[in-house]
């Protein structure tokens, strides 16, 4: 187990380093791509800002509070997208048969698929998330205590874990539905759009589903809600607001099993 982890991380690092070198060979093009990624994802925040030119609160949240939700979710998703975003090409690899080539190399397949065509331009998505987050922190009305200062980075990292688990489950699903790479967009980009807004504006059933079926609420709604001093919609016990790291760990474990099941299925059917 430990050795496989080492092999995987080492292989991931090697492949990523090569792609980064290849990307940086064309600096102007790379800079433009980062800028493009930055602007196109930032437009979502522009849309929110336009909404707030017409109103002062949305679902009872101020613009700074919404920005805090936006910044945390966008940063977590951006990190997951940078590290694992290439997983959406898995179905295509199975279809065109290049999956087999990965299975005869001495590096775990997951590391090879995630590192393949590593797109450093996705730093654009992360940096707009971070900028909005920083802006939100300067604007938002919160009494900062030590536990809130710890909870914030823990939340962002847990969000990375939860989004990462969704990417991985989506990839596992592509092992048997090769053309279905778009399904995971509903939960990654769709989840991000959901979490950019306060939970108060959504139907209770939707919030319930985003808590207990796909644990998106743990990416920011619950922990950030606690920082902002908001009641959660479902009246859950208070400790739930601090459960994000545990939830992320469970989600990643489940995703790990899903991935293994998908790969095992591929290796027994060859398609």
């Amino acid at each position: 187990m430990g050795e496989r982890l080492y092999l995987g991380l080492r292989g991931y690092g090697l492949i990523v380093a090569m792609w980064v070198r290849a990307t940086l060979a064309y600096r102007t093009s790379f800079a433009l791509m980062v800028l493009g990624s930055f602007v196109s994802t930032f437009l979502n925040f522009v849309a929110i800002m336009i909404m707030f030119t017409h109103t002062d609160v949305l679902g009872g949240f101020t613009v700074a509070e919404v920005a805090l939700l936006y910044g945390t979710s966008a940063t977590s998703l951006g990190l997951a997208d940078l590290l694992l975003g290439s997983l959406d090409r898995l179905g295509a690899r199975v279809r065109d048969g290049t999956m087999d080539a990965l299975l005869v190399r001495p590096v775990p397949v997951f590391a090879q698929v995630t590192a393949d065509r590593f797109a450093l331009r996705r730093l654009g998505r992360i940096s707009q998330g971070v900028l909005v987050l920083i802006w939100a922190l300067t604007q938002v009305d919160v009494d900062w205590t030590w536990w809130k200062l710890v909870l914030l980075p823990v939340t962002v990292l847990s969000g990375l874990g939860i989004y990462g688990a969704i990417y991985t489950c989506g990839a596992a699903f592509q092992f048997w539905a090769n053309d279905a790479s778009e399904v995971q967009n509903a939960f990654t980009y769709g989840g991000d759009t959901l979490l950019q807004y306060p939970p108060t504006i959504f139907a209770k059933d939707l919030v319930w589903g985003a808590t207990f079926i796909i644990p998106l609420a743990f990416v920011n709604w619950l922990p950030i809600g606690r920082i902002l001093g908001r009641e959660d919609r479902l009246g859950l016990p208070g400790w739930v607001d601090f459960a994000s790291p545990a939830v992320a760990l469970i989600a990643c474990t489940i995703a790990g099993f899903a991935w293994r099941a998908g790969l095992r299925g591929y290796r027994s059917t060859g398609s």
């Binding site: 949305l58 679902g59 539905a177 279905a180 778009e182 399904v183 759009t193 807004y197 939707l206």
Partner: peptide
């Protein structure tokens, strides 16, 4: 591309729901 179409329909519907609630709030 039937499966791809079904996947797209699913994703568009999910996004539709999310955006619909934000519009209701606004």
């Amino acid at each position: 591309y039937r499966i791809a179409t079904a996947a797209g329909v699913f994703t568009n519907t999910v996004f539709g729901f999310i955006l619909a609630y934000t519009f209701i709030a606004l």
